[in-house]
Write a protein that binds this DNA or RNA. Structure first.
Length: 370
DNA sequence: AAGATTTACAACCGCAGGGTA
DNA sequence: GTACCCTGCGGTTGTAAATCT
């Protein structure tokens, strides 16, 4: 295929004025892409090697942090085709990323419904409860925290909660976490270990059933979700000293949030309730960032990108966009999380056999009105 | 103020499992 | 049955930002 494209330079980027890239995806006039992307595509055109580069091929596969431009390309592709078939994504988007990287970027960052920022007290409790019950099965744990990714939870556990629990254990204080019966690895005899395990399981069962009770924790959880991120540490149960670092990626999260906001217009009420909150949080966080742009680097770039999003996708046009792209109706069902993820607010919480068994055993069934 | 250290989190890597030809 | 492809998961690493000395 002949590579014919007319462009004009706009600052660091190039704007497609006319023509078509040598990709299956046609970039419309006005589409802004960065110089690097253009070079990559031009190079491939020249080499006649358009198409999918081998996944994880060491050469030609970009690694490291994603740029906002790459995010735009990925999101726009997924907007058109929906998530899935990741193997084809690099080829079809021209991204110099392996399919895995694209999938991870989407599932851990760009996908709608992701809540960023500090974990709430309820979320923290849930993680502790579930980790005690399920171990390091982060995907399973994430299933009970609809707005958090397994990666987020895993990171939070490894960098913060685990240390906090170890500290509490080391100080000999049950502290505020004693009630959850959390196991903290420590040398102990088999007997001690078994007794401890039994206690842990019993307490975790109880704690989990309480945490998952729609009348209690779940409603609280959702209420928490509605609260502003800035209030997270106010009156924290643990009086968390974790520094506020809500949105490190706000410069682009703002843009992504604005883009994705359009999608939510097509989302049915039931699923929107939780997701919209996260968008509000996300957008709000972005707005917060914007409000303090004087101290936020790249704010100008940020503003430009926001414009780019509007230019590219236009919120209004999304009103009539493909309903397939509505998060709750996604083909994969993974726009939020995997399809097995329980709807915390929606009463229907499918438990695994193990969890059911554990909860049944604890006689907590009466607390769970599924 | 500057260097050292810690923290937080995005991203990568390797493996496992499911689907399919 | 099996080889291959694709995806998901959990462990780990790299690095920027924050904090400390």
């Amino acid at each position: 295929m002949e590579c014919v494209i007319e462009i004009r330079h706009v600052h660091e980027e190039v704007e497609v004025v006319s023509g078509m890239m040598c990709l299956e995806k046609e970039f419309t006039v006005g589409h802004l892409i960065d110089q690097h992307q253009l070079e990559v595509r031009e190079k491939r055109c020249i080499q006649g090697k358009m198409g999918r580069p081998p996944c994880c091929d060491k050469e030609g596969v970009k690694k490291g942090p994603w740029t906002p431009e790459e995010d735009i390309i990925l999101v726009s592709y997924i907007q058109e085709h929906g998530p899935g078939n990741w193997k084809a994504v690099p080829a079809k988007t021209g991204l110099s990323r392996c399919s895995k990287s694209c999938r991870l970027r989407w599932t851990n960052y760009l996908r709608p419904g992701i809540k960023r920022g500090n974990f709430t007290e309820e979320e923290e409790k849930m993680i502790i409860h579930l980790q005690a019950l399920l171990g390091n099965r982060w995907a399973a744990i994430a299933a009970y925290l609809p707005q958090r990714t397994d990666n987020d939870i895993k990171n939070y556990w490894n960098t913060y909660l685990k240390k906090k629990l170890n500290k509490l254990e080391a100080s000999g204080s049950e502290g505020s976490l004693g009630h959850v019966g959390v196991s903290v690895s420590q040398p102990m005899s088999r007997g001690q270990w078994e007794r401890r395990l039994q206690t842990d399981i019993q307490m975790a069962k109880k704690a989990l059933s309480e945490a998952l009770s729609p009348n209690k924790a779940s409603s609280t959880l959702l209420a928490e979700s509605n609260s502003k991120l800035s209030n997270h540490n106010t009156g924290s149960f643990y009086n968390s000293t974790k520094p506020t670092q809500s949105i490190c990626y706000a410069s682009s999260a703002d843009n992504i949030a604005r883009l994705l906001k359009g999608w939510m217009k097509n989302t049915p009420k039931a699923s929107r309730s939780t997701t919209q909150n996260s968008f509000n949080n996300l957008a709000g966080a972005g707005a917060d960032t914007a409000s303090s742009e004087g101290t936020t680097k790249g704010s100008t770039h940020n503003a430009e990108l926001s414009e780019t999003f509007e230019t590219l996708f236009g919120y209004e046009s999304l009103e009539s966009s493909n309903s397939e792209f509505s998060p709750s109706l996604s083909p994969e069902g993974t726009l939020f999380q995997d399809e097995s993820k329980p709807v915390i607010a929606g009463i229907d919480i499918p438990f695994s056999l193990l969890e059911k068994w554990l909860l049944d055993d604890a006689g907590c069934q009466d607390k769970l009105s599924f």
